[in-house]
Write a protein that binds this DNA or RNA. Structure first.
Lengths: 190, 190
DNA sequence: TAAATTTCTTAATCATGATTAATTTTTTTC
DNA sequence: GAAAAAAATTAATCATGATTAAGAAATTTA
């Protein structure tokens, strides 16, 4: 298994070498090229994905036909559509590679087996979810407390490397702003 | 243990009567009156709470001194400040009763013991978190896709009973709007 | 039930940031 | 390296909803 994922797992739970092997046995390496999709609207999402390398966006098409980005995924993030995965309903989301991307795919059936064979898996994903929840709640705080310009500044100062990697219009979409507004904000700084 | 909680748990996991007793042994009934606090800014959050009866709000004070409501909690919801609880840092949040409220308190130390004694607890909370995550992600979708009036209409039509129970200015705060705007929207409907 | 407090409403003004449309710059593809 | 496509910029206009301020209504408390 990838060293990234092993290190990642060990930050959350205690796990033996044998159990790591079991974990590994359920993972499938998957490579997708820039602009390819992991999931499209209407499909059933059946896996969780761990990003080894690359960059992903998760978005939906809003009522005006615009792509609205919900969040990005980069190295060492799990990504999936929980609504489709958990409730077994067709997805309303698209999951697409922004760069050529390498992932480890954990199909939900495998996940269930893994949880039975390596029970700490439950704890691992419980803790990951808690951490993810903290992040998304913080995001809601920022949406309501900061004005557009401040949100953009925060994003750039928190993830300067990432702001470089992703087209500006996608950052605009993620932050719920128009690309024109981002341009205006940047122009003001000069 | 309260029948509400037993029914709730059984929706997520398989659990024996003995295990339910163990679960129960870690819970403390707690009653707080309207306007009392479960948590204040600066304190360490050390428990998870299951709401048996009543209504709770979780909010922070923003840079302008306004109370910004992050979310509400009602019957059959778990409520806590994950950031403080998980990272062991002082909270920036307030958790306050909107009505006289009955809760079951699960201190984090008890939670850890419970997870070891009844391992399905991990699964229970993993699943609760996944469900909660789906809800909060949907909320972000609505924030970005719907204009103020539509968000308010959706809130009222999705939880009409709840909209009755909570003062309008709190709903405004939760939706990130001014109370005056809610008044305007309501006036328009007549 | 009267007084006090809290909540809600109305209306005028103002700020933020969307929209539209045209142009420029950058990146990709052949 | 030229053509095509994608991304970013600029500026004018417009809409949404905040802010301010005052007053009315409802609820709570004494």
């Amino acid at each position: 298994m990838d060293v990234n994922l092993i290190a990642y797992i060990k930050r959350y739970i205690v796990i033996s070498e044998t159990e790591i092997d079991t974990f590994q046995s359920y993972l499938k390496l998957k490579k997708i090229r820039k602009k390819e999709f992991l999931l499209k609207e209407g499909q059933l999402c059946k896996s969780r994905y761990f990003i080894l390398k690359g960059c992903i966006r998760l978005f939906y098409i809003d009522s005006k036909g615009n792509e609205q980005i919900i969040h990005f995924g980069i190295e060492n993030w799990w990504i999936t559509d929980y609504e489709s995965l958990i409730n077994n309903i067709p997805s309303i989301l698209y999951i697409q590679a922004i760069e050529d991307t390498e992932l480890l795919e954990l199909p939900e059936e495998s996940f269930d087996n893994l949880c039975n064979e390596v029970p700490q898996t439950e704890r691992l994903f419980r803790k990951i979810m808690e951490k993810t929840y903290i992040a998304i709640q913080k995001r809601i705080e920022y949406i309501y407390s900061l004005k557009g310009e401040e949100q953009f500044d925060l994003f750039v100062s928190t993830s300067p490397d990432f702001a470089q990697r992703v087209p500006q219009y996608m950052i605009a979409s993620y932050l719920g702003m128009s690309p024109e507004f981002i341009s205006k904000v940047k122009a003001k700084k000069k």
